[in-house]
Design a protein around this nucleic acid. Structure first.
Length: 606
DNA sequence: TCGCCAGCGG
């Protein structure tokens, strides 16, 4: 009952915003047969039309106009077609992602008094959710009650999904818990899976696993989709062994893994460069008769590119073509990105030409990769030129595209232009994200404007825009670089007070900051603090502290740390090696130093 | 005989 109240408290008037570009006027003109001569192929008989609809609701219409012509025909048929047929037509529009058109047709159905069912309304709610209008979805839920229907588990799953897709996970969780508590619906695998997905997407994989166990206890069998979501999340968290454990569990429980399962695992293994395991998984796939698809190959292409193996990536693309899984824009984007990362812009341009010759249209991301390539080479003007060309090609630059240029301007010390560009982004209505703000604050620090950066940060903070560890890292680093040790220390404490979790990078920045001003005690304290907070130091952390020790002539401490990091399987970096070598050549007559010189001789001469 | 849940990109 609580739910009902909640639902009715939202706007019960079912009104739609002007979604998309299709208006009723367009629909009328589009559906006239004379406009589309092809419409003569649209059947006029009930049986043929019904056959067509049950086919198209699975795959969607090839052309939007065909759907509109069919709809118009359906309206004219007497006796009036069953609601199922109208639902199928709407389903076909959902398949082709023509959500706003589906909404317009639903409105026409209402105006003409065509009967609808809870399935019609659920389909329309789904369209609202895809258009990021979940509140209209709730208004439609009210419409369901008003018509005397009962919303079922599918309706609620759709709404839960809608909330999650608008980053309203807490509301989604409340809705879900209320549904369970009130026994409003019998939960199925899909609704559990949707919440599990929400947990994974908000970084709570362990809670997601707990919910997976809970659904099992409640007698609701996790589906292959449920497992895939958790496996994917674990793989992204670099916990691939746990993910592989779930793969084994799936097989034990008779849930057949599919190509998505394997692709997620392969992706996770690629991130860890575990090539042997990847080969093993491919064998496994073959044994289970699961064929790799375009995604699987694209992941591999991307992994090769990131590993610097561009030649192998090219060969894989050839293999894809031979196996009838032709590469698409995403695959080629990976390859282009590989060349851009190596600074081989001419080769990236050659890939672009290949794409064009194969009639694969470059997308926003393709151009963003090129822009990123030029910015990394500090050729920002060429990057801006590409940005200006994008609208001419019918492509709208994304916030990431703008971010890349903004970063480029700051890094080339074009401060005025960077400020103007940032303002331009705001004026254009670009939805700035945490990365934009990070680039802006980093850019100010980079150009020595730490005070301005801090003032901007406080303004952003008061609007709740910078609640992110990475933002604190940028500023702490900037403050230390500017010699503002106390302010840096305060900001780090603030990070904790705000309930944020320092990352290994945060700690390393603190260690680096303290070392450069000779506050070794404080640097060590940070290392202990990390351990207390279960944050493992990485190779950079150790090397940073070792540099600090050597620079401050604390050879013993530095050497103990070298032993410790080697025991953890980390390697000393080039800078540490050069410091060791300086130490070996040191003429100081300290007996401790002599002992160390003897010990480390082999390490340096490796 | 219709509606809900998954994997690739700076």
């Amino acid at each position: 009952m609580i739910l009902r109240r909640v639902c009715f408290s939202s706007n019960t008037l079912v009104r739609f915003p002007r979604h998309g570009v299709i208006t009723l006027f367009h629909l009328h003109s589009l559906s006239r047969s004379s406009t589309y001569p092809n419409s003569k192929y649209i059947p006029s008989y009930h049986s043929e039309l019904e056959q067509l609809l049950s086919e198209k609701c699975k795959v969607g219409f090839d052309k939007l106009e065909d759907a509109l012509v069919v709809f118009d025909k359906m309206l004219g048929m007497r006796p009036l077609l069953n609601v199922v047929k109208f639902n199928q037509l709407l389903a076909a529009l959902v398949k082709t992602k023509d959500y706003s058109v589906a909404l317009s047709l639903y409105r026409r159905m209402c105006i003409l008094g065509i009967p609808v069912s809870v399935i019609t309304l659920t389909t329309v709610i789904n369209c609202c959710c895809h258009l990021k209008q979940v509140d209209y979805g709730f208004a439609l839920l009210a419409a369901i009650f008003k018509r005397g229907f009962f919303a079922d588990v599918v309706t609620y799953t759709t709404l839960v999904r809608g909330l999650i897709s608008q980053d309203r996970f807490l509301e989604a969780e409340i809705l879900f818990k209320n549904l369970l508590k009130e026994n409003e619906v019998k939960p199925d695998a899909a609704i559990f899976t949707t919440i599990i997905d929400g947990l994974c997407k908000t970084g709570n994989t362990s809670q997601a696993i707990m919910l997976l166990r809970y659904m099992e206890r409640k007698g609701c069998m996790p589906s292959v989709v449920t497992y895939n979501i958790v496996i994917d999340s674990l793989s992204k968290d670099r916990l691939v062994d746990d993910a592989l454990g779930l793969l084994a569990e799936m097989s034990d429980k008779g849930v057949q893994p599919n190509v998505v399962t394997y692709s997620s695992l392969i992706h996770g293994l690629c991130n860890l460069n575990r090539w042997d395991d990847i080969i093993q998984l491919f064998r496994d796939m073959d044994r289970h008769k699961v064929s790799p698809d375009k995604h699987t190959y694209s992941i591999l292409v991307d992994a090769h590119v990131r590993d610097g193996k561009v030649k192998e990536a090219e060969e894989l693309i050839e293999l894809m073509i031979r196996r009838g899984q032709p590469p698409d824009v995403v695959t080629y984007n990976s390859l282009m990105d590989g060349y851009c990362l190596r600074g081989e812009l001419d080769k990236a341009l050659a890939v672009l030409r290949t794409m064009t010759s194969k009639r694969i249209l470059p997308d926003t991301h393709t151009y963003s990769i090129m822009i990123n390539g030029y910015c990394k080479k500090l050729e920002v003007d060429r990057a801006i030129h590409i940005l200006e060309e994008m609208p001419l090609k019918g492509l709208e630059p994304s916030v990431e595209t703008y971010n890349t240029i903004l970063d480029g301007l700051f890094r080339t010390y074009r401060l005025d232009e960077a400020h103007k560009f940032y303002k331009k982004m705001l004026n254009l209505g670009v939805k700035l994200n945490i990365v934009t703000r990070g680039i802006f604050l980093h850019g100010l620090c980079w150009n020595g404007l730490v005070v301005e950066a801090m003032s901007e940060f406080h303004k952003m903070e008061s609007c709740g825009l910078v609640h992110h560890t990475r933002i604190y890292n940028i500023l702490i680093h900037g403050l230390f670089k500017d010699g503002k040790v106390d302010e840096a220390r305060n900001l780090f404490n603030n990070l904790l007070l705000k309930g944020l979790q320092p990352s290994v990078i945060s700690y390393t920045i603190m260690i680096h900051g303290f070392c450069r001003v000779g506050l070794l005690d404080e640097a060590y304290k940070i290392l202990w603090e990390m351990e207390e907070n279960n944050c493992l130091p990485n190779e950079v952390t150790y090397n940073t502290l070792i540099h600090g020790c050597f620079k401050n002539k604390m050879y013993d401490g530095g050497c103990v740390l070298i032993d410790e990091m080697c025991a953890h399987g980390f390697k000393v970096d080039a800078f540490t090696t050069s410091m060791l070598s300086d130490m070996l050549q040191s003429k100081e007559q300290d007996p401790g130093l002599l002992a160390l010189q003897k010990k480390f001789k082999p390490l340096v001469h490796q």
